[in-house]
């Protein structure tokens, strides 16, 4: 419960910072649409339409009030409701993000523990080298190399986008739960997963090595458990805890990388929309996009915390 209140407070601070941040950025949202030749009265009228003539304090109050009602306002650029513009894009982004984070952690946890068991082997040296290489290479470079290799040289994957063009979808399920979607999702998800892999992989490896030295591991062996049971039930289970902590941190980073991945793979997600909105001084869209990203990060963090509390009985949230 306290954790939930913290989450709300975090979001409130976030949206406040966003609101003022965009307003102190140079540039006026209306200069793009308003012809300087228009009479000043007309210019003022348009300004008033968007509520930009009011003092900033009042704008803030109105914005917050609308937000609580679930209204994100109207885009200055598209002149359509913000939710209409970014609603679908948020879902697209979430699909890609969750897919790549799942791959990152599944491979990181299993791979990291595997090389910890095979401590000192060639496999360990190679795997550690590889994940560090993937982490050191810029994400956009990885993305372009992947496209060049697996979409252009070997046409295994589509060059970008989310679905093969020219299709009409009847409803949500048909669009997102199809082989075609999966086919488009795989490459960007793998690229961003391989970029983030190093963190859970190395944390898991280190954590596993430490845990395997613990007294309770020796005890599990003394109890006559099979080596596999010792490793999974006691080793991996305990080594997982620091990885969950890292998960929470990594989610935040992943959002930033999302912008690059979406641009390279022409993924119709929110990362791209966010960048455009900032460039256009489209306050409502930018604010909403950042806000929703913030909600996503905060919420995923909250889930990670809950997961940690579930995995470690020593931690309680009251």
């Amino acid at each position: 419960m306290r954790r939930l209140a913290q989450m709300v407070l975090t979001l409130f601070v976030l949206i406040t910072i966003l609101f003022f941040l965009f307003r102190i950025l140079p540039g006026d949202p209306l200069t793009m649409f308003l012809d300087a030749a228009l009479p000043v009265e007309v210019q003022e009228l348009v300004r008033a339409q968007f509520g930009l003539d009011k003092p900033i304090g009042e704008q803030y109050y109105l914005y917050m009030r609308n937000l609580l009602r679930g209204e994100f306002g109207v885009s200055f650029y598209y002149r359509r409701p913000v939710l209409e513009i970014i609603g679908d894009k948020l879902i697209n982004t979430l699909f890609l993000m969750v897919a790549s984070l799942t791959i990152t952690f599944a491979v990181g946890v299993l791979g990291g523990s595997l090389v910890a068991w095979q401590r000192g082997s060639t496999l360990e040296t190679l795997a550690v080298g590889l994940v560090i290489f993937l982490r050191s290479a810029p994400e956009f470079w990885l993305g372009m190399m992947a496209l060049a290799l697996f979409s252009y040289r070997l046409p295994l994957f589509p060059l970008g986008g989310m679905n093969t063009p020219g299709q009409n979808f009847h409803g949500f399920l048909e669009q997102y739960f199809s082989l075609d979607f999966l086919h488009h999702l795989l490459l960007p998800a793998l690229v961003s997963a391989s970029y983030y892999l190093a963190t859970p992989f190395l944390v898991m490896r280190g954590s596993m090595i430490e845990v395997m030295k613990e007294d309770f591991i020796e005890m599990a062996r003394a109890k006559g458990l099979r080596e596999r049971q010792v490793l999974y039930r006691h080793g991996l289970r305990n080594a997982l805890l620091p990885v969950v902590t890292v998960l929470a941190l990594l989610i935040g980073f992943a959002i930033g990388g999302q912008v690059l991945i979406e641009t390279i793979f022409r993924w119709p997600g929110m990362g791209r929309e966010m960048v455009l909105a900032v460039q256009r001084n489209d306050y409502p869209v930018a604010q909403a996009a950042f806000f929703l990203m913030g909600v996503t990060v905060t919420f995923l963090n909250f889930l990670a915390d809950l997961l940690y509390g579930y995995l470690d009985p020593r931690v309680t949230y009251d």
């Binding site: 613990e214 309770f216 599990a220 289970r237 305990n238 995995l311 470690d312």
Partner: peptide
């Protein structure tokens, strides 16, 4: 010997 840490905490 190390009964303190010989039980699995989870």
């Amino acid at each position: 010997q190390g009964a303190m840490n010989s039980l699995d905490p989870v």
